[in-house]
């Protein structure tokens, strides 16, 4: 009986929603499966997809141009001694914010594609970053930070 009422609830919910369907993009989804054992943490810009792809047991940050479905080189971003945890690409694709772990330290970084430069963003007061989000221009950053056993959200304006 409980199962019937649950199913009825889902049906009623769906009936109140739009009937139009999102369309999968098979050519792109096939590409995203190729040559990685798993992929996680998607972040969409206007024409960009950033995500963490796992190859040979190691996760790397990848940026794909959705117009031609090709990966974009990110020199200096993926370090052999660092494990990426989460990321966000700006709407214009010019910047990628990344939380990564290295030598037991978890830190927040900003990558500027035009300079191929990775800059550490210090947290004040100090804390352990987890999840990050950039706005369209990459000039405003929101980051989830663990401090004294609870989660805060910091907003950071970037030059």
């Amino acid at each position: 009986m409980r199962m019937v009422s649950l199913s009825l609830g889902v049906l009623l919910f769906l009936a109140g929603c739009s009937s139009d369907r999102p369309r999968p993009r098979p050519e792109l989804n096939g590409l995203l499966r190729q040559s990685v054992s798993s992929r996680r943490d998607p972040s969409l810009g206007q024409i960009w997809l950033a995500s963490l792809g796992k190859r040979g047991g190691r996760e790397r940050i990848e940026l794909i141009d959705l117009r031609n479905r090709r990966p974009v080189p990110l020199p200096g971003l993926n370090r052999a001694d660092a494990q990426p945890i989460s990321l966000s690409v700006s709407g214009d694709g010019s910047r990628i914010a990344v939380v990564q772990q290295r030598d037991d330290r978890t830190e927040l970084f900003l990558y500027r594609r035009n300079a191929a430069a990775l800059q550490r963003i210090p947290l004040d007061p100090p804390g352990v970053p987890r999840s990050v989000s950039l706005d369209g221009s990459g000039r405003l950053l929101a980051v989830q930070v663990s401090r004294n056993g609870r989660w805060d959200v910091d907003l950071i304006r970037l030059p």
Partner: peptide, 28 residues
Amino acid sequence: MERASGGLLATSQQDPALSGNGKWLAVI
């Protein structure tokens, strides 16, 4: 670098998401 005050919101907050124009913040 300009910062908003640390701990933007009063209770525990996770999964921040900014709108493209930077005017809205969604959190759990």
